[in-house]
Write a protein that binds this DNA or RNA. Structure first.
Lengths: 191, 191
DNA sequence: AACCAAACTTGCAGTTTCTGCAAAAAGATT
DNA sequence: AATCTTTTTGCAGAAACTGCAAGTTTGGTT
């Protein structure tokens, strides 16, 4: 259970993230300084760098920081992936406002998109591990790696589309749709 | 045809990239300064930033800078993708030593991997456009976007594996292998 | 309650990164 | 050669980032 420390840390972290996003949304990323962000979050400039290596990291955050490690059920792969990643979608959907703001800032400042993609990379590694565990393949076998990378790519497309649509449909539906299109990638019809 | 200017620009760019990679390989990314890199490339420190926004960008470069826009033939999608991306693979394979060095530096400094992934993002957009063109779908339709993202993910896995294997097999084979595993992602066997 | 140890914050000094601007150098054009 | 464009460079300064050595808060122990 989280003690006072953990709670306060999360508060500070969230305050920094929201301050960074709010300011970047108003003026653009490169017209905001770490000083202003820390001031808005009411911590010292030095503390900012105790939480984030760079300004950009504060904007992107660690989107899935406290998300449970994915566990795959013995289902067809796509179904198992959809099930294993559901908690992540719920968390994103739960932080709806924060995420819509974040995605708006990323859209307006495309140099951030890489970082968002990057943030998913660590999650991708954990997913590859989970797939390897469930299938009994070696973790460095190409199949789990490709499967994880593909799932990651599909989720990214879904999140971007979800945010662009302004949450008019729940995220999970966009993910389902993206996964559906996965099945068409390897059909043998001519393009 | 490229004049002296274009030639010199490419030379300078390549000199900066190789200097950055060589130094980062020797000492680690964060023990190299942009000053040292520009000195090694025999340009002024200021010039470095005319070419790259950050030190990290110099290390990752723009891997596919002068690669022709992909064009899809009317084949089954995976075959068309493999065909359309072949020039990119050849270019990478042609710059074998540079790429192996780059991937070694990236392995040793994982914070760079995101940037590599990111660099592929612009190529991914062009690919999505090409798929949309060929299929007659809207560029913002999820199918071309998912297809491009998936192809991108598969290529990334292939390049990483190719580099880790030290080019014991040609890159194109790793890509074929990764594409082959794509077909298994949506099969309906239980995991 | 008194105390201690660990975790977190802060200030400060110093290095490195990065930008804007204007002058100089090099290349292209006629 | 004269001129125009592109690239390089130096300089000044802002902002980003790091290491260190305090202080402060928190959690647990006696």
């Amino acid at each position: 259970m989280p003690g006072r420390r953990e709670i306060k840390r999360r508060q500070t972290r969230l305050a920094l993230i929201t301050a960074a996003l709010r300011l970047a949304d108003e003026r653009g990323v490169d017209r905001v300084t770490t000083e202003e962000i820390s001031a808005a979050a009411e911590v010292s400039p030095r503390t900012f760098f105790n939480y984030f290596a760079t300004k950009e990291h504060a904007l992107v955050g660690d989107p899935l920081e406290d998300c449970p490690a994915p566990v795959l059920k013995p289902l067809p792969l796509l179904d198992a992936l959809l099930d294993a990643l559901a908690p992540a979608f719920e968390q994103i959907q739960g932080d709806r406002d924060l995420w819509l703001l974040r995605m708006r800032v990323i859209s307006a400042n495309p140099q951030l998109l890489p970082l968002l993609i990057a943030a998913a990379a660590s999650a991708e590694q954990r997913l590859a591990q989970a797939i390897a565990d469930q299938t009994g393949l070696a973790p460095d076998h190409p199949r789990p790696q490709v499967a994880a990378a593909v799932a990651n790519a599909a989720v990214r497309v879904a999140v971007v589309r979800w945010a662009e649509s302004g949450d008019s449909r729940p995220l999970i539906e966009h993910v389902r749709e993206a996964f559906h299109h996965l099945k068409e990638v390897d059909d043998s019809r001519r393009t």
